[in-house]
Amino acid sequence: MRHALIAMRAIVLREALRFVHQRERFIAALVRPLVWLLVFAAGFRAALGLSISPPYQTYITYETYIVPGLCGMILLFNGMQSSLSLVYDREMGSMRLLLTAPLSRTWLLFSKLLGSTIISILQVYAFLLVAWLFDITLPPLGYIAVLPALVLGGMMLGALGLALSSFIKQLENFAGVMNFVIFPMFFLSSALYPLWKMAESSELLHDICAANPFTHAVELIRFALYVEWNGMALLWTALATAAFMAFAVWGYDPARGMMTRKG
């Protein structure tokens, strides 16, 4: 057990060190949601009227509405990016090294996931801080209550990236998958528009959005930011995390998955 914890700490620490060395990544991760918040949202505010729906108790501006979605966006992009780096050969090398450690693969992958999730969460808080400077504020307790939601959401998206990385042979294919995963996941969710608004234009799209695990991760974050409970979103996110994690473990199983097909 001690061994497992020492290894986990080292894996998390390594992710953190790597992140510190890639300052551009941090800036990029911060600029992306800020552009959405400060440019996109400003433009859409006029076009989109939002009525009161839980967890909001008053009329809200569009900027306020998309903050949880943009938190989700940071987790989504980070989750995918850290697994994208796994596809690079150099990373494959360090992945090989990691997998030769005398610990169970599930534990090793879980530790890696935890490391990248912690990095994502730091970025989310940096984003919330900048949003706060622009007067988009949340209940003070919300900043704390959102932490478990961010952990779970980050783990879910990281596990998805990890699962995808195990099934993709080349980086070129990965770019394609990104297009078919990141964008649909983001746009077919409640990140940018509430689901009831979606239902007005298309029932089918609404149903797809409602089934999208990213929607539930965003809703979990949204409710947590306002210190409210959303059991349904929690359940969905937890189930999706377990499913993606199972896929990742299966993909990195030595008997199958990327390694064998790579040879």
Partner: peptide, 28 residues
Amino acid sequence: VVFQQTTLDLDLTVRQNLRYFAALHGIS
């Protein structure tokens, strides 16, 4: 194991690389 391709983390120092690996084997 010494793999054919380099598996060092180039942004980390020699000692940090070794510490990471030692920890994977439960040595700290």
